[in-house]
Design a binder for these strands. Structure first.
Lengths: 184, 184
DNA sequence: TTTCAAGTCGAGGATGCCTCGACTTGTTGG
DNA sequence: CCAACAAGTCGAGGCATCCTCGACTTGAAA
């Protein structure tokens, strides 16, 4: 018997949650996902305990921040699954995810860790990757036996490279891998 | 007028330095380069101030640990520069460096940061990379305009992937990039 | 032996993580 | 409108780590 009447969440709690997300986004952009959570709470004008009340772990906070972005990304992926040129679609998808995963320093590592909080995102990404590689292979546009898991590794590694090298250098890495993947 | 007679370093100082290096190597292998330096000092039976006396920064400690390993690696690189099959030599070199850079979790990041303490290693690696790519290109074994810098990025990214995915998955990434790099 | 530079020590200030019990407040049923 | 109370907020405090610095110790050399 689940209680059917759920009490509406408090207005101040919602406000605090939003402020926390906004400040976390700003701070993570500036300093990466490793930034001080006490600093985030401070900037949001909220006590540290409140932050932990809303987001029990750093990763939970990151996951909440990703939610909106993810929806957009996955819609793009679904559109690409219907693209008439599967090779182009594949390359497009990879570049989109890399851009996405380089939003904050340390995000690639967070994703690669495959924690529970981010597992949905990871699965979804791998799934779309499988779809796109299958379609490209069926069209004879793929050289090897590349899978969605391979794409996931590649995309995280490229996003990580973007954090440490210049974006241009990371793009060259991506081009190299794409050249190895896509039939000439 | 530089003082020509330099006082010989104290025996206990040398002993402490060696113990610190040995324990740091063990701890970094177990927990990565982010491990607690106080823990390293403790295990070495030395006060924290002594550790900082020998190695002013974490990166300096990492650099000291790498010194021996590096010599070996670079010798291997020089041998490969004379290999009759430039394409094979290139692939060999890349795999050797990736293995090297995956010795400790976090080492790839440390290298990619190109701090002063590690700049020599980085330069040396890029130099050998340039040599090997030039030779491979001259032999018609290279598809694009890949340089030593590209190799450096690739190798760090692959080493990073090794830390977060399975080694097998990281190897697939490497194969992909190699396929894109080496003429069919 | 004596001298003293080189080396060692560890307390301590700063920052950050995360928990937990006491307090406050928005929502809701009457 | 109000009282009750669940939900939310607060921040002190315990713990770990970083790194510095001044007082002390010791080995090398004259």
């Amino acid at each position: 018997m689940t209680e059917s009447t759920r009490r509406r969440p408090r207005a101040d709690a919602l406000r605090n949650r939003e402020r926390l997300l906004a400040e976390a986004d700003a701070v993570f952009r500036e300093q990466g996902t490793g930034a001080s959570l006490e600093g985030v709470a401070r900037r949001a004008g909220v006590a540290i305990g409140t932050l932990y009340g809303h987001f029990p772990t750093r990763t939970a906070l990151v996951a909440a921040l990703l939610e909106a972005r993810n929806r957009e990304l996955f819609e793009h992926g679904d559109r690409l699954a219907a693209d008439p040129d599967p090779a182009r679609a594949l390359a497009d998808w990879i570049r989109a995810v890399v851009r996405h995963a380089a939003a904050y320093q340390g995000l690639a590592a967070e994703l690669a860790a495959r924690s529970d909080e981010l597992q949905d995102s990871c699965h979804r990404m791998t799934g779309i990757g499988d779809l796109l590689t299958d379609r490209a292979r069926a069209a004879g546009a793929l050289r090897g036996d590349t899978t969605g898991a391979d794409l996931f590794t590649l995309m995280n590694a490229a996003a990580w490279a973007r954090e440490h090298d210049t974006p241009a250098q990371a793009d060259r890495l991506l081009d190299l891998a794409l050249a190895g993947m896509i039939a000439r």
